[in-house]
């Protein structure tokens, strides 16, 4: 585990993630955006944002946990493991084998880590996707963990933060995967009834069934600069319209311009922005003029 947030400056706190390894100072990586060579330590000190061009590199779900207060995270639902409900086999490999390989490579059971933690002392439920596990495609375990995170937040009367990256619904689970879109959205009704917010952060890349379900109806939607976000993949659209899409199509900035998201927030300001938002909802505890029991029960923002 990289010691990603410990040495970061300003708004991100250090995160105490166990079994963190020191990064040797002499390792370097090439930025995929500007092709500059960067010292790995410098890159990690900068939250995996290229110090030369500002490109936001992908983070693992474990690395994202550094967003929380040090030592505040406790993981939940670790017992959920994927199965192969369709007995899905392609010429390359079976879903069962693909799962096993992904599990060995990432050390994760599936593409989501869920749990409870805090940001600046405000407790929240968390669900984070990891693109390195089968493109964070949404199957049964992904859906169940996000749904439980929403229900847990409702039960504990705390906000929900989701960090979303995905290639879409997991094809190897067929329509069962598709139904996870409805399942997570269903569970979010509990959160709405509890009067707690769902804040969704969209990170690169986020497509298909995930974009077209629960994050797009979040109370607050934040995206990282330059993140690719959309419904249909760019290649598919280009094939259909038989022309190249303009630069900047389906980026976070494109989404902001078209009114689909609230904010584009650089990674080194994210913790600060989240803390500020969370304080606004948290402040209601002191200032609520209508007792919670008498407030109208809003579901999905509709009375």
């Amino acid at each position: 585990m990289k010691e990603l947030f410990r040495r970061t400056r300003k708004s991100f706190s250090s995160a105490e993630i166990s079994e963190q390894a020191q990064i040797p100072d002499d390792l370097w990586v090439k930025c995929s955006a500007c092709r500059e060579i960067i010292y790995k330590k410098q890159l990690y000190d900068n939250l995996k944002v290229c110090p030369k061009c500002g490109h936001h590199m992908r983070m693992s779900a474990h690395e994202w946990l550094g967003l929380l207060d040090v030592g505040s995270f406790s993981e939940t639902d670790v017992h959920l493991l994927p199965t192969d409900p369709l007995g899905f086999v392609t010429p390359d490999e079976s879903y069962a084998v693909k799962l096993k390989k992904s599990q060995q490579r990432t050390g994760m059971a599936d593409a989501v880590i869920a749990g409870v933690g805090s940001i600046n002392g405000i407790v929240l439920a968390l669900g984070v996707g990891d693109f390195s596990f089968m493109g964070a495609s949404m199957g049964s375990v992904y859906g169940e963990k996000m749904a439980r995170a929403a229900e847990r937040a409702a039960e504990m009367n705390i906000p929900l933060l989701t960090i979303n990256t995905s290639g879409g619904a997991r094809q190897q689970e067929g329509v069962i995967a598709l139904m996870q879109m409805a399942k997570v959205t269903m569970a979010l009704n509990r959160l709405a009834e509890a009067g707690q917010p769902h804040i969704a952060v969209l990170v690169d890349p986020c497509y298909g069934g995930v974009t077209a379900s629960y994050p797009s109806v979040a109370d607050i939607i934040i995206a990282e600069p330059g993140a690719n976000i959309g419904f249909a993949g760019k290649r598919l659209i280009e094939q259909i319209i038989r022309q190249k899409l303009p630069a900047g199509f389906q980026t976070a900035e494109f989404m902001l311009e078209h009114g689909m998201i609230d904010l584009v927030v650089p990674r080194n300001e994210l913790r600060d922005v989240l803390a500020r938002l969370l304080r606004h909802y948290d402040r209601r505890r002191q200032t609520r003029s209508v007792p919670a029991s008498e407030a109208p029960a809003y579901a999905n923002g509709r009375p």
């Binding site: 409805a182 959205t185 994050p215 797009s216 109806v217």
Partner: peptide, 13 residues
């Protein structure tokens, strides 16, 4: 994506 998500959400309840 937003249009589909809103339909799904609306139908859930």
């Amino acid at each position: 994506a937003n249009a589909i998500a809103e339909c799904i959400q609306t139908m859930t309840n």
